[in-house]
C-alpha cells in the first residue's frame, strides 16, 4: 500500500486542481454552494472512474512495461513536475506529466515503449484543445438557437441556467473521473491490482483532493472563469465535458485545463479574436509543450539517481 502513496498524492493534487474546471463557474457565480459542489464532484468523479475509467487505464498501463519500482518513480516524477510547474505558475496538464514521466523512466530503464499507443496519445493531446474549440463553437450556435426559439423570460432563463450549470458540472466531473483516473493509478496495474480496482482507487484519490482542497482552487480559478456570462460558462463547461468524455471512451487521458482553455478560445473566436488574451495563451502553450519534456527529464533523473551505486 505504501507504494500507492505517489498515486494518492497525484490523485489528490489532480482532484484539488481540476475541480475548478468542472464547477468553478457555477460556484463563483454563487449558483451552487461550495459544499454541494465539492460533494457532487467527489461523487461523480468516483462514478466516472468506476464506470468508464478502464479504457484510459489500459492505454497508460501498457505505454511502457512497468515494475513496481518504475511505477513509483513515474508517479513521483509526474507529481513533482506538476508541483514544479505550479510553482512556476505555468499551466500544467497532469495527463502530460504522467505520460512524460512514464516515457522518461521507461526509456532510461530501457523498457519497451508502445510507440503506436504513444502516437495515439500525442494526436489526442493536440486534438483536445482543437476538439474543445470546435465543440464550443457548435454548442454556442446550437444552444443560442434553442434559447432564441424558446424565448424565456429572465425569471425562467436564470434558474434554467443554474440547473444547466449544475448538470453540466456533474457531467464534467464524471468525464474528469472517467478520463483522468488513468493518470493516477494506471502505472500500478499489476497482478495485485486489477483495472477495476485501480479505477475505483484512483477515483477515490481524486475525490479526496476535491473534497479537501478543491474549494481553495475553485475560489481562485472560478473568479477568472466567471468573467464569462452564465451562457458562455455553460458552453465552456459542456464543451469541456463532451471533449474529455470522448477521449475517455477512446481511452486516452487528456487535460481538462486544455479542454476548458480550448472552449474559452472557441467562445472568444465567436465574440471577436480581439477578446482573446494572446499573452496568456502563449503561456498556456508553453506549459503544454514543456510539461511532458520536464516530466520525462525528472523521471529519467529519478531513475538514474535511484540506480547510482558506489563502486570502490
Amino acid at each position: 500500500m505504501l507504494s500507492l502513496f505517489g498515486a494518492a498524492f497525484l490523485g489528490w493534487s489532480l482532484g484539488a486542481n481540476d475541480s475548478a474546471n468542472t464547477f468553478g463557474t457555477a460556484v463563483s457565480s454563487r449558483m451552487v454552494s461550495m459544499k454541494l459542489a465539492v460533494v457532487l464532484i467527489a461523487v461523480f468523479v468516483i462514478v466516472g472512474a468506476a464506470m468508464q475509467g478502464a479504457h484510459g487505464i489500459e492505454t497508460v498501463s501498457t505505454l511502457s512495461t512497468q515494475t513496481m519500482h518504475t511505477a513509483i518513480l513515474s508517479s513521483f516524477a509526474a507529481a513533482g513536475t506538476v508541483t514544479l510547474m505550479t510553482i512556476l505558475k505555468l499551466p500544467v496538464s497532469t495527463s502530460q506529466a504522467v505520460v512524460g514521466a512514464i516515457l522518461g523512466v521507461g526509456l532510461t530503464a530501457e523498457n519497451d515503449v508502445a510507440w503506436s499507443k504513444l502516437i495515439k496519445v500525442l494526436v489526442c493531446w493536440i486534438g483536445t484543445p482543437i476538439g474543445a474549440i470546435i465543440c464550443s463553437v457548435i454548442l454556442w450556435h446550437l444552444l443560442r438557437a434553442i434559447i432564441r426559439f424558446w424565448r424565456p423570460s429572465i425569471f425562467v432563463y436564470d434558474p434554467a441556467m443554474r440547473w444547466a450549470l449544475i448538470v453540466c458540472g456533474c457531467y464534467s466531473a464524471y468525464a474528469l473521473g472517467a478520463n483522468n483516473v488513468a493518470n493516477v493509478t494506471a502505472v500500478f496495474v499489476s497482478d495485485d491490482l486489477n483495472v477495476s480496482q485501480a479505477a475505483m482507487m484512483g477515483g477515490i484519490f481524486i475525490a479526496a483532493g476535491s473534497l479537501t482542497f478543491g474549494h481553495r482552487v475553485m475560489r481562485t480559478v472560478g473568479r477568472g472563469i466567471v468573467k464569462l456570462d452564465a451562457f458562455a460558462a455553460l458552453v465552456a463547461v459542456l464543451s469541456l465535458a463532451i471533449t474529455v468524455h470522448v477521449y475517455a471512451m477512446i481511452g486516452v487521458p487528456v487535460s481538462t485545463s486544455q479542454a476548458i482553455v480550448g472552449a474559452v478560445i472557441g467562445i472568444g473566436m465567436i465574440n471577436g479574436l480581439q477578446t482573446i488574451n494572446t499573452k496568456a495563451l502563449r503561456r498556456v502553450c508553453l506549459g503544454w509543450v514543456a510539461t511532458p519534456f520536464v516530466a520525462a527529464f525528472v523521471g529519467s533523473a529519478l531513475f538514474f539517481l535511484t540506480h547510482l551505486s558506489y563502486q570502490p
Binding site: S29, R30, I154
Partner: peptide, 12 residues
C-alpha cells in the same frame, strides 16, 4: 435568496 443569476440580480 439566489432567485436570479448574480448579474441579473444587480441589474434588476
Amino acid at each position: 435568496k439566489r432567485s436570479l443569476l448574480p448579474e441579473s440580480r444587480g441589474d434588476l
